[in-house]
């Protein structure tokens, strides 16, 4: 009698494990097609591509970004120094409480996401194991925080972040950051640099969430793979490649953003804390916006 129960239990467990293997979009029936397609001329070659990139390039590029971007700003700081604007003039209200809260929520997400991501990239120097595995889990938690922040952020700033005629001129003069002179910089409420960062965070960030979620879920079927005409495993390879390249771009821009807010212009970070910007800052760095406010007699 006992034996019979065991038999039923074991066969049903075995059936369950075979069933879950068969349901899999990675290890199920398609595995053979994936094996045969790996690296073939007619196939995507995403497997060998991912292998080469991850084995030889990703870690080096990340290290390059982490060294070169701050080094460039250090040189900028030493050579050109901070821009200083008067903090005694009128103050212009630019960021509501809600916008500031959302900004800092996104900042918190970045403070979780970037170090934990880099801990995985450079995991071999940390010995792997629990420490790096914990970083991987925190990376997932950070994603949820970022998701909560990025949606309102996109909605309340998208209109002001659309390109304008000022942007091209701003880019051509590098926002005036290559000279010490106090000059009127062509920019509306947001300059081209800030706009670039905004799109990087919202569009790039969405790309990070999507590719990251795919890598996290791994064996799922929401039609994404078939939509792109890829097998599930190739979709994952594609996502891993995109996730890494986007991460490099975002980290480089994040460092830039922090430098601008903390070092490039003295005390400019206070606008994200109090909500007010100095009149002189606005007059020079956001000249079009200033003229508009003046036209509306708001300053």
């Amino acid at each position: 009698m006992m034996k019979k129960y065991w038999f039923v239990l074991i066969t049903s467990l075995l059936a369950a494990s075979i069933a879950s293997a068969a349901d899999s979009r990675i290890w199920g029936g398609m595995i053979l097609a994936n094996i045969l397609a790996y690296g073939q001329e007619h196939a995507t070659r995403l497997g060998p591509l991912f292998t080469t990139l991850q084995a030889f390039y990703f870690r080096k590029i990340f290290a390059g970004v982490l060294l070169c971007v701050p080094a460039a700003f250090l040189v900028h700081y030493l050579v050109l120094g901070q821009k200083v604007f008067s903090h005694d003039g009128e103050k212009i209200f630019v960021f509501s409480v809600f916008k500031r809260l959302v900004h800092w929520l996104a900042a918190l997400a970045f403070i979780i996401l970037i170090p934990t991501g880099l801990m995985m990239v450079f995991g071999r120097y940390l010995g792997g194991g629990t420490l790096v595995a914990t970083a991987r889990h925190l990376h997932g938690v950070g994603t949820v925080v970022f998701l909560v922040a990025v949606i309102p952020m996109f909605l309340f700033w998208v209109a002001e972040m659309l390109p304008t005629r000022d942007d091209m001129r701003w880019v051509l003069m590098a926002g005036g950051y290559l000279s010490r002179a106090k000059q009127e910089i062509p920019a509306g409420k947001f300059n081209a640099g800030q706009k670039m960062w905004f799109w990087m965070v919202t569009l790039g960030g969405s790309g990070m969430i999507a590719t990251g979620a795919a890598l996290y879920l791994q064996d799922f079927d929401y039609g994404a793979a078939s939509l792109l005409g890829l097998s599930q495993i190739d979709l994952l390879r594609f996502c891993a490649i995109v996730h890494n390249f986007l991460a490099m771009a975002i980290i480089a821009n994040f460092i830039t953003h922090v430098y601008m807010a903390l070092f490039a212009i003295k005390g400019v970070i206070s606008s994200m804390i109090t909500g007010y910007k100095e009149e002189e800052e606005v007059r020079f760095l956001h000249s079009s916006f200033y003229k508009k406010l003046k036209g509306q007699r708001q300053v």
């Binding site: 290890w27 094996i35 790996y38 690296g39 991850q54 995985m120 194991g129 991987r136 495993i233 994952l236």
Partner: peptide, 15 residues
């Protein structure tokens, strides 16, 4: 040491 990142699976020709 493994952190379960899945990269080996993406590189492996045999799943």
């Amino acid at each position: 040491k493994c952190i379960g990142c899945g990269y080996c699976l993406y590189a492996c020709p045999f799943g």
